[in-house]
Design a protein around this nucleic acid. Structure first.
Length: 918
RNA sequence: GCGGAUAUGGUGUAAUUGGUAGCCACGUCAGACUUAGGAUCUGAUGCCGAGAGGCGUGGGGGUUCGAGUCCCUUUAUCCGCACCA
């Protein structure tokens, strides 16, 4: 009987669905294992072959763990809110809910064909009100909490209010937007709006007037991770800086914990490094400089307090709040002009002109608190308003940016650390002896920094301080297709809806663009207000809101009382294995950790880190095929012959090319203009050229998994995607090797049935050689799965089959079936039943190996007997005395042995002594 | 500029973790069976050389009895961050 993958796969997929084979429940009697994929955004283009790569890997691991006796949670859902659906709606007028629903149905159909072991009864969709009520709920909780740096956790805002009632701001150490100072009496005198203003300074979800990334083309603000090189990640539109009142999440409160938490995670070093850089911790000193002729004190942050005697000027950002105050009348015009220019430079220009030096003097002077010198204060856009205090002390001798600035404006450059040549460039290295530095002279840099930290605090002019590059996350988007904020405004003061009023559902609209006044789409909704007539917030939440806690919801997806029950949470705890793309390194994977830590502080979840182990699968690139048209004709010349012609390169649909050979008839049928195409063939075939490009519709290189599944079957697709190379590595999709994998499955099948349809399975005893092959394969596959080295397991299966020859023995095929089940579940299931089982193969125990079958020839120390070299040995299974005697010893090695030195180690490879280590 | 990763046949890759480099596939070549083959099966296939043999893991150097693997240096490609004080 032929290997009829279509019949086998349909049969078992239906059965798995009908019988709920992959449904799981809390089972305290069994150990749990949680395997999660990053859920997809259901785009209109459907699933391409790149999507399943990670899903297949995680499915293999899930099935393996299940066969190892674990209760495996392996859910799937959809990240259904998002910009593309809304953009599509603006263009076509189709409601995003409709198109999203349609796309989801398509995704589901495609996913089902691949034979994943998802528990679909736990599916979540972020756009479902029953789901997003918990997103809104978390937001309300964040609004109601602040971060206490003393207890190092989120605390109820009521605790803060109680403190204000009693002591004012005195004694508060909390994560905050700006430093506030007021007494209990002042607090008592504030009205509601003023009090709320103060509380917004502390809330974990808060509103603030900040510098934001504004994307005019998309009509919305974006978070830092949604902007790359001054362009929006989605769409690639220019992004500009703008001051706007926005909702934010105070993720910076958790910066240190997110940094520390990385140590406990099994993530790749490169990913941890990306997060560390993103958080950007730096230890330095806060210092106050007196401003000459003013009682203002200019606050700066520096990591090099040791260079204080080398400070020859100061610089503040153009957006610094004291710009106008520090500017003297004679400089005012120049300063205003400079500020105006800076404002109109886009982020992109600013990045492109990174090395351009620009700035202007304020006319004011500061006093160096150590040397007492009077130094000028400048304004320049190389100082960022968003980092530190937006003001720096400039040390041109030891900072390349300050150096460039000083050179440009001919400012004094005083070296204070030995080692460089300041005529040529600044000396930035943190090593050397201090000079020209009064009390610091003779110390080395590290010593001087430590000394200065103490000295600054002792003199009361500042303190040691840790700064982070991480910014609070902008949380509102001026869009329609997202979670509405459970917020309404009373006389402009924001209030959150009570929890029992959630979810606040997204109203239906039919025009998805911004209003004429530039308001978000929700402004179009008449009556978008509370029953009492208070208006709701008009913006919606960003994409990362819904994906920040979805892994928790999977644990208990139908619970209408809470996000996740204690019982479910304490059983499933956190994700043991998370598989997904590296592109979420600074977005989703940061926000989720923040969100989870917050819920952990509040006692809703029992683990502070959501994803214990993380594997990043590589991206699958497209492999574009080209044909070569002879210019001015409808003749196409094969790749190898094109040199003789003047040709034009045309992209051709990769689905009508096989192994770079063009299907001529399909090509003629592809486009009307090619209907009468003629070909110049080489050896009777048309060979296409190729290139690696991003997989996209416009390049005609999108390969759809459906086509592969229809042609070769799901098991072939699964094994082939794994066979392609290491999981973490990006690689081009290329079907050139798929026949090899398919052939393997057919040969596996032929162990059961001959071509004449005879059942070959028999009960003969296996030979030692066959057992050795089997156990070797089991060992290899077990180790490979644990290491996510699936490509080498596929190779191991092929070797196994080659070595087994025509063996159709039950005692070999039965463990082999259980072994291959995670990779090729359909054929394994069919084989399992042919072997006479009526259970499902995913519950078949994963086979173990026995070392006794694996022993290779192993020689230990040689001993001298009657002047001859003899081996004290463990005999190999098949070795005879003849084998031992014929062991070849190199002359040199033997000589060394005969010199009488005691060898440490004898190197024997395949029965041959290569060397003796003395 | 800083940080991280990668580099092995015509191609994708593998290497017991310092021990015969190239497993397993693709491709190619030869053969068998076929009316036919883009089916199936068998064999060969790193490079140079008729052969003996020599050379081979981006380049150069080092450690070691022994290096794809460790160290130094250099080149190329990819990724992340990028005026972060």
């Amino acid at each position: 009987m032929e290997y009829n993958f279509k019949q086998i796969e349909q049969k078992w997929q239906r059965k798995w669905r009908d019988e709920g084979t992959y449904k799981v429940d809390v089972d305290p009697a069994r150990p749990k294992f949680y395997v999660l994929d990053m859920f997809p955004y259901p785009s209109g283009a459907g699933l391409h072959v790149g999507h399943p790569l990670g899903y297949i890997a995680s499915d293999i691991y899930s099935r393996y763990k299940r066969q190892m006796g674990f209760n495996v949670l392996h859910p799937m859902g959809y990240d259904a809110f998002g910009l593309p659906a809304e953009q599509y709606a603006i263009q076509t007028g189709q409601h995003p809910a409709v198109t999203t629903e349609r796309n989801i149905a398509r995704y589901r159909e495609q996913l089902d064909k691949i034979g994943f072991s998802f528990d679909w009864s736990r599916e979540v969709r972020t756009s479902d009100p029953e789901y997003y009520r918990w997103t809104q709920w978390a937001f309300v909780e964040m609004f109601d909490h602040y971060y206490d740096n003393r207890t190092n956790r989120a605390e109820p805002i009521s605790k803060l209010v109680a403190h204000f009632d009693e002591h004012g701001s005195e004694g508060i150490d909390a994560a905050q937007t700006t430093e506030l100072s007021f007494t209990a009496a002042e607090w008592a005198a504030m009205d509601e709006a003023a009090r709320e203003q103060v509380l917004q300074n502390y809330r974990l979800a808060f509103r603030a007037d900040t510098q934001v990334n504004w994307c005019p083309a998309l009509g919305t603000v974006l978070a830092n991770d949604e902007v790359k090189e001054g362009l929006s990640v989605r769409g690639g539109y220019p992004v500009e800086q703008k001051r706007m009142k926005q909702w934010l999440l105070r993720v910076t409160a958790y910066a240190q914990r997110m940094l520390d938490g990385l140590e406990t995670l099994e993530w790749s070093d490169s990913l941890k490094e990306i997060q560390r850089n993103w958080i950007g911790r730096s230890v330095g000193a806060q210092m106050f400089f007196d401003v000459d002729g003013s009682d203002r004190k200019l606050e700066i942050f520096t990591t090099r307090p040791d260079t204080i005697y080398g400070v020859t000027f100061m610089v503040i950002a153009p957006e610094h709040e004291w710009v106008s105050e520090l500017t003297t009348d004679e400089n005012r015009e120049a300063v205003e002009q400079y500020i105006d220019e800076a404002k109109h430079r886009s982020e992109r220009e600013r990045i492109a002109e990174t090395r351009r030096v620009s700035g202007v003097a304020t006319g004011s002077y500061a006093i160096n608190p150590f040397s007492g010198r009077r130094i000028p204060i400048y304004i320049s856009d190389y100082v960022l308003a968003g980092y530190g205090t937006g003001a720096i002390m400039a040390v041109p001798a030891h900072d390349s940016r300050d150096y460039a600035f000083a050179r440009h404006f001919s400012l004094e450059i005083t070296p204070v650390v030995e080692g460089g040549d300041i005529e040529k460039e600044s000396y930035d290295a943190k090593s050397g002896k201090l000079i020209n530095s009064d009390i610091l002279n003779g110390m080395d840099v590290k010593q001087a920094i430590a000394f200065m930290f103490e000295e600054i605090e002792r003199r009361g002019i500042g303190k040691r301080l840790v700064n982070y590059r991480l910014r609070d996350a902008i949380f509102s988007r001026q869009r329609y297709w997202g979670e509405p904020f459970p917020v309404y405004y009373k006389q402009g003061v924001p209030h959150t809806l009570p929890l029992d009023k959630l979810p606040l559902t997204l109203p239906a609209i039919d025009n998805f663009g911004p209003t004429a006044e530039g308001e978000p789409p929700l402004a179009r909704v008449a009556g978008w207000q509370t029953a009492e007539g208070y208006p709701y917030e008009l913006s919606t939440m960003p994409g990362f809101a819904g994906s920040s806690a979805y892994y928790l919801r999977y644990m208990d997806p139908h619970n209408d009382k809470e996000l996740v029950s204690r019982r479910a949470d304490e059983y499933w705890r956190n994700v043991d294995l998370y598989v997904g793309g590296i592109e979420h390194a600074t977005g989703h994977l940061m926000y989720s950790r923040f969100w989870n830590m917050f819920l952990y502080d509040l006692g809703y979840v029992c683990e502070s880190e959501p994803f214990r182990k993380l594997v990043n699968q590589g991206m699958i690139q497209g492999r574009t095929n080209f044909v070569y048209r002879v210019v001015g004709t409808n003749k196409f010349v094969s790749l190898g012959l094109k040199e003789g012609y003047h040709t034009q390169e045309i992209r051709v649909d990769v689905n009508i090319v096989k192994n770079d050979v063009l299907d001529l008839d399909a090509f003629r049928a592809w486009r009307p203009e090619f209907a009468d195409a003629e070909f110049i063939l080489e050896e009777g075939r048309y060979i296409c050229g190729w290139a690696i490009e991003k997989m996209s519709k416009s390049m005609f290189n999108v390969v759809n998994p459906d086509y592969i599944v229809d042609t070769y079957g799901a098991d072939t697709l699964r094994m082939y995607e794994m066979f392609l190379g290491p999981l973490e590595q990006s690689k081009p999709w290329d079907t050139n090797g798929i026949d090899g994998v398919h052939k393997f499955l057919r040969r596996l099948w032929s162990k059961f049935y001959s071509r004449e349809d005879k059942l070959l399975l028999n009960d003969e005893e296996p030979t030692r050689a066959e057992l050795k092959t089997l156990h070797k394969t089991i060992k290899k596959v077990r180790e490979d799965i644990e290491n996510f080295s699936f490509n080498t397991s596929v190779a191991a299966f092929m070797i196994c089959l080659n070595e087994l020859g025509d063996c159709s023995k039950r005692k070999i095929l039965e463990p082999l079936t259980a072994l291959i089940a995670p990779f090729a579940p359909h054929i394994a299931e069919e084989m399992w039943h042919l072997l006479g089982h009526d259970t499902t193969v995913c519950d078949a125990p994963f086979p173990d190996y026995d070392e006794q079958y694996l022993v290779e020839s192993s020689f230990e120390y040689p001993v001298m007997v009657n002047g001859k070299l003899r081996f004290k040995q463990e005999y190999p299974l098949t070795a005879t005395d003849e084998d031992i005697r014929s062991t070849i010893v190199s002359a040199e090695a033997l000589q060394r042995w005969l010199d009488g030195k005691q060898p440490k180690k004898i190197i024997v490879v395949r029965g041959k002594i290569i060397n003796i280590v003395v």
